[in-house]
Amino acid sequence: MSIYDFTMKDAQGNDVDLAGYQGKVLLVVNTATRCGLTPQYEELQQLYDRYAAEGLEILDFPCNQFREQAPESSGEIAQVCQMKFGTRFKIFDKIDVNGARAHPLYVYLKAQKPEDKGNHVFKDLLLKLASLGEKREGSDIKWNFTKFLVNRNGDVVERFAPSVTPSEIEADIRALL
């Protein structure tokens, strides 16, 4: 099994076969439009602007599981991101990333990289406080803007904590390009 075995719905409800991304470097991110980390959209778009021509693709999966910070429909989320942050990378349909209804793609990603990389003690403490009362287990996604980096062969090479900004992983992306 690989990431290329999944077919996902985009924000408009169309099927997207991830096999179409073979040979690309992928940054897979669960996002939310009303999160304190939402300004990361700007850095994601900057990375996309810099490296799309070299083979970077950003796959944005909105998720409403963390304090319901993505309440809009998938189409509305795509529109907000395009208007507010100028995003031009692919925005998919809203999915669950944890629990019994976690999308199989995220079950797969978490199995490949069960732990976050990144040691931002203060930021991580704030995220922990924000998620008090929300049950997390083992490899569960901790919060919005967890990032999975996938190489051109479809291997999940790293998982970055929500507090790790896109600009902080630019060197990792460049190394794979």
Rank of each mutant, 00 (worst) to 15 (best):
F92A: 04
E42I: 08
E158F: 04
G55H: 06
L127H: 04
F6P: 07
R152Y: 05
H103Q: 04
Q82E: 15
D15E: 15
T146V: 10
N153C: 06
S2L: 11
A111L: 03
L129Q: 06
N151I: 04
D172S: 14
H103E: 13
Q65C: 00
L125R: 11
V80D: 01
R159Y: 07
K84D: 15
E42P: 04
E170G: 03
A171L: 12
V97H: 07
I173H: 10
S167D: 15
L56W: 11
V164I: 14
I58S: 07
T146S: 14
T146M: 09
N30W: 04
Y48C: 06
Q69Y: 02
P114Y: 12
V28E: 00
I77F: 00
G118Y: 07
Q40Y: 10
K123Y: 08
I173Q: 10
Y21R: 08
Y51K: 05
K142H: 13
S167C: 11
D60T: 06
G23L: 10
T146D: 12
K113T: 10
F145I: 09
G138E: 14
M8D: 13
D93W: 02
N98D: 14
D5V: 02
V97I: 09
E57V: 07
T87L: 13
S167H: 12
V156M: 01
E68N: 10
Y41V: 03
N153L: 13
K90T: 13
R34C: 02
L59H: 07
D172Q: 14
D49G: 03
Q65P: 00
K142A: 13
A111D: 12
W143H: 01
D93I: 00
E76Q: 14
T38Y: 02
M8E: 15
F148E: 06
V164F: 12
E42V: 08
E68H: 08
G23R: 08
G36N: 04
E76I: 09
K110F: 04
